[in-house]
Design a binder for these strands. Sequence first.
RNA 1: GCCGAAGUGGCGGAAUCGGUAGACGCACUCGACUCAAAAUCGAGCGGUUCACACCAUAGGGGUUCGAGUCCCCUCUUCGGCACCA
Length: 820
Amino acid sequence: MSQTLPSGRRYQPHSFEEKWRKTWEAEGLYRFSERPELPKTYALAMFPYPSGNLHIGHWYNYVAPDTRARYLRMRGFNVLFPMGFDAFGLPAENAAIKRGIDPRQWTYDNIATMTGQFQQMGTMIDWSRQFATCDPEYYRWNQWFFLQMFRKGLAYKKESLVNWDPVDQTVLANEQVINGRGDRSGALVERRKMRQWHLKITDYAEELLDFAQLDLPERVRLMQTHWIGRSEGAEVDFQTPAGTVTVFSTRPDTLFGATFLVLAPEHPLVEALTAAGQRRAVEAYQEATSRLSEIDRQAEGRPKTGVPLGSTALHPLSAEALPIWISDYVLASYGSGAVMGVPAHDQRDLEFARSFGLPIREVVRGPAGPLDTSRLEEAYTGSGELVNSGFLDGLPGGKEGIHTVLEQLSAAAGVRPKVTYRLRDWLISRQRYWGTPIPVVYCPSCGIQPVPEEQLPITLPEGVAFLPSGQSPLSLDADWKRASCPNCGGPAERETDTMDTFVDSSWYMYRFLSPHQSEAPFDRELVHRWLPVDVYTGGIEHAILHLLYSRFWTKVMRDLGLVDHSEPFRSLRNQGIVLGEDHEKMSKSRGNVVDPDQLVAEYGSDTVRTYLMFMAPWESGGPWDPTGISGPFKWLSRVYTMLAGESEGPEESVRDQQLRQAVHSTLQRVGDQLEQFAFNTAIAQLMELTNLMVKAKRSPISAQVWEESAQIFNLMLAPFAPHLAEELWSLRGQAGSVHLQAWPAVDAAAAQPDLVEIVVQVAGKVRGRVRVPPDADEALVWQEANKLENVTRHLGGGQVRRIFVPGRLINLVPLGQSSM
RNA sequence: GCCGAAGUGGCGGAAUCGGUAGACGCACUCGACUCAAAAUCGAGCGGUUCACACCAUAGGGGUUCGAGUCCCCUCUUCGGCACCA
C-alpha cells in the first residue's frame, strides 16, 4: 500500500471501523425507541436461517436495506429495522444425526457466531430486539395460534395423498415440491396416504387474489395468482348406480359433447362402481398409480392410460349412458376428482378417447367448419356455435359465451356455477424433531384433544435419540409422549409431529415490536401503530411460500380480532443474487464462494458495503468480480484524502457556482435514487461528485463554498459508508455522530445549472451543440445554432422545419428535400 | 407446451416523458513520479477512417422530425407453471 502519504492522511479503515462500532454500541446509537412525533417507517429484511456463517449473500441482502433505513432516519423518520433468526429446521437435526451435536446447541452457537459477524457490517440493527424462532417464548405462540385456528376449524387433520420426501423423511407442503422434487433435498417425492394436519388457506383463496393493499413486483403477483389458480366453471352431477358423481368443468357449454366420465384412481366411489369382472384390472391400475412418483406421473407426452370400471353414468340432459373409466391424468386433489370426457374439445380427453376408441362428438362449430372426428388430432378449444346440443343449439360456445350458456343450463337439474382453485390447504405436519410441537393429545376415549392454553408451551424434550433412520425423536421418547387427556383426565399420547417452519416465519414481523412480551404473541397497541411493514425486502424464492403463508396468517389474525389490517406488508422488493466469478450460483462444491470476513479483513467493511451496492442494480444481482472491488476502495480512499487531507496538485478551474450546482443536484439525485432502490447509480453520482470536488479543492474556491460542499458530502456518505463518514465527521471537528444529523436540504436554485448544452440536429443527426440558459426559447437557440458553420453547411439554405425540446435539443429539418 | 422477464463496449452497468447511446467503475494503453516496482496523479479507451463522415443497443421489418426506449415477426438466455379438467 501507499507509503507516499503520511499515515494520518491515508485511508486506513482498520484504524477506525472497529472503534466506531464500539462507540455506537456503547452510546446506544441504534437503540430503537418510539418517537410518536415523527412519521414511522418499518423496514424489514427477511431474517436468515442460522446456517453457521454469514456469507456474501447475507451482506448483499442486508447492506442495501440498511443504507436505505439510515437514509430514512436522516430524513426524519422513526425507523424500525430489526433482525432475528429463522432458527427451526432440518440442518440442525442433520448435524445431530451426523455428529451427535444437540440441535439446540448447534443452532444457538451458530446464532452467536453470526451475530458477531453481523456486527462487522455496521448496520443500524437494534440487536436488543433479536429473537430466534426456536426460543420456547416464541414458538409457544405458534402453538397458541394453532389452538385458535383449531377452535375455528381452520386447523384440521385429514387423510390425503401427501408428498413424502424419502431423503428428509418427512412430508412436504405442495409449495415445497418443485418439479416433483423436495425443495431442500432434491429427492423425488413419493405419494403417500397419511393423516396430517392442515391449515385451511383455501378458505382465503379468493381474498388472497386481491392485491389492492399490497404493492408487489408484477412477477410475484403473477406467480401467486397462478399458484392460487382460480377457475370459473360449473359442477355437473351424473347419477350412477353407486350414487352421484360430481364433475367440475370450465366448459359446461360442451356438456352435450361428453361421451364418458373419468375418475381419479383414488376417487372414493371407484370401488363401488367397479363391476366384478373389472375388479382385478382396476386394483392393478390403482396399485400401479400409487407407485408412480410425481415426476413419472407428470412426464411429458406420456400416453394416456386407464381402465374402464364396467359401469355407466346417466348424462343429466341427454339421459345417455356414459362409460366410467379411471385414469391417472385425473387428479384426486383438484376439483371433485372426476371429469366429464369431452374429446372433441379437450386435448387430454381426445388423447384418452383415441387410446381407447371412445366416441367423439363435436358440439362447438368453429369458423373452420365441421370437425372430422374420425381423424381429429387436435381438440377444438376455440369458440363457435353450439351444435348437437339439444336445447343449447345455436348458443355461443367457448370461454366467452360461458355465462349465457350457464344461464340456460342452471335451470337444468344437476348443473350449478362453481369456482375452483388450484391452491390446496397448507399441510403443516412434519415428521421431524427440530420444530414446534403440535399442541394436541390423542385420548383413546375422547379422540383428538387440544392442549389447554395454560399448558403452553409444549417444549421439545432434551437429550433425545437421533437415529439416521429418520424416525422422529419425539415418537421414540416414551416419557415425553405420555400425557393426560384434558377432557377425561385419562392417559393419552402427545402428537409427535412438529410444525412446518414456515409457520414460524408467518408472523415474526409482528413479534419485533414486543420481542419479549410474555402475555400475548405481540403488543396489540404497538402492532396497530407499526404494522403493516412499509417495505419488505427479500429473495424471489419466497414469492409463493413464505409470502403467501404470511398473507394468510395476517388475514386469520384479523378474523381472530387480533389486528385490524389485512396484509402484513405494504410493499415488497426482491433483491438479486450474487453469483460466483464464473457466473454460476455460489456453492462450496463449485469452489466459487466469496468470504465476506476475508474481504472485510482486506478492504474494510465500508468498501464491501459499497461494492455490493455498486456492482449491479440491487434488484437484479450479478456475478462477483474480484478485481472490481478495488474501484470502491479507491473511491473511498479519494474521499478520505479529499476531506481529511491537504489539497495538492495544479490549480484547476472549478468555480464556486459550478461546485454548488454539482453538490445540490447530486444531493437531489442521491435522495431520489435511494428511495427507488437505485443504490448503484446513487454511488455513481457520488463518485462523479468526488471527481469534481477533488479538482475544486485545488481551484480558487471560496472557503465557505468548500465547507458547505464538504459538509453535504460527508452527510450523503453516511448511509453508504457509515464508518468512514463518522471518522471524517470527527476529523472535520463536527460534534456528535454524523448518523444523528438531518439529511441536508436541497437548494433548488443552486441545483439549477446556469448554462445547458442544447444539441443541434439537422434532419435528426447531431451536427453541433450550443450553450444557452436553461430557459432559453426556440428563437434564441435557433439564432445560436445558425452561428455554427457545421449546421449551416448541412442545412444548405432554404426552408427549415424546427422541432424544439426546451433544455434538450433542436432538430432542424430542411423542407422540400425528399427523405424517402 | 403455457405465462413472464431480459438481450447495450473486453467486463459490471448508465441513459425521467420517444430527444447527445455508453454516465460511473473494472480491465487495458500511454505519460508523470520512482534506481525500479507498487501506490498515486494526468491522458486515452465501441467499430471503420488521415480526416470529413459513416456504422453501431440480439436479428429483421414498421411508426416518428427523431427509437436502446413504442408496435409486429424471429432468435437467444433466464425465471415460474407444467395432464389443475
